[in-house]
Simulated assay, not measured.
Amino acid sequence: MAENDPTHAVAQALAAAWQGGQTTSAQPWALADAAAAYAAQDALAQAMGWFPPGPARHWKSGGPNRQAVLTHAPLPPAGVRCSPASYADMLFHTIGIEAEIALRLGQAVSPAQAAALTPETAGMFVDAMAVSIEIVDSRWAEGGAAPALLRLADLQSHGALVLGEWLPYVARDWAAQRCVARIGQHEPVVRTGTHPLADPVWLLHTWLQHATRQGATVAAGTVVTTGSWVGMLPAQRGDKVEVEFDGVGSAAVQL
């Protein structure tokens, strides 16, 4: 990747922001398409030294509905913690909270296996599920107002991920699934059946095809968090965040 390539420049700007614990303006930058944004993700991860060779072990994936193009991002391992978690040692800028279900692969998935998957068959690779809390943050000073491709390059505005206790995966009536999110002293946010794709498993085939696109196998134990049931809720330093999914479990984090 040439140093004057826009993808390289975006990755370097983001790496400097990550390393300096600061934000940077998105205004000087532009990316041509999603392929360029994913290339910037890869270059950023390489600059930061986040991952060994091969696909990352933690991911986020999702989209606003089944008709939309789903997006994916690998997650830096230092920000992935088990509930109850504390992030007093990490710097965030503008904090958003998403209440999610994470899924874990029970076996490795090769590129050939991923290519053959459908929404109906991808669930056979999942062995466990857990409540997860994603902390949303941005290295762009414009935050959510930055261009979509630049947000995608910035790990789809990822800050950190909290994982609750794992339990065996079983198909559920997700349309009846109740979720409660509590943030600080605010009134609890209660939602039922509000996963944007109706079923968290629905995105697995698309995510696995993306994760194996460079020819590497995704390892057993790899985790993907699958989209928010409550949209993105504002939070601030000092808040305690608790998320509970009836029949699945809970997770908590101190910001």
Rank of each mutant, 00 (worst) to 15 (best):
V189L: 14
A85I: 05
W207E: 01
Q254K: 10
A30K: 12
V136I: 15
L163C: 04
A99Y: 03
H72M: 13
S61E: 02
H210A: 08
H186D: 10
G20I: 10
T225G: 01
V131R: 03
L150Y: 05
A108C: 06
A85Q: 02
A122I: 07
A73D: 10
M90E: 12
R237C: 11
A160E: 06
A35S: 15
V243M: 12
P84S: 07
E120Q: 15
V241Q: 02
T71V: 15
A235I: 05
V189C: 05
A56F: 04
K240I: 11
A130E: 03
M232S: 14
A47S: 15
S228Q: 10
E120S: 15
S138H: 07
S86R: 14
G159Y: 03
M48I: 09
A130N: 04
Q22V: 15
V189F: 00
H72D: 13
T194F: 04
P53L: 08
W229T: 09
L163M: 06
D154T: 03
T121D: 09
P53T: 08
T192F: 08
C179A: 15
A220K: 06
Q185G: 08
L155M: 12
H93P: 01
A16V: 11
W229R: 07
D42P: 07
L197H: 06
A220M: 04
A39R: 14
A198P: 02
P52H: 05
G231T: 10
N4M: 14
G221S: 02
L150E: 00
V180G: 02
A40I: 01
L105A: 01
Y87I: 07
A56E: 05
M124P: 00
D42G: 10
L91K: 15
L117V: 06
I135R: 06
G249S: 12
M90S: 13
F245W: 10
N4G: 09
Q185R: 12
R182M: 08
M124G: 07
A32G: 12
A181S: 14
L155N: 13
G63L: 09
F245I: 08
V190S: 12
Q12P: 00
A153K: 00
L233H: 13
P6K: 04
P52Y: 04
E142V: 10
P147Y: 03
V189E: 03
D89P: 04
G144P: 11
P77V: 06
Q185E: 11
T217D: 03
P188V: 00
M129F: 03
E165G: 06
M48S: 09
T71H: 10
Q113Y: 04
E98M: 11
R178G: 03
L91H: 14
A181V: 13
G49C: 12
L31T: 03
E3F: 08
C82V: 08
G238H: 12
L75N: 07
T118V: 14
W229G: 01
T71K: 04
E98I: 05
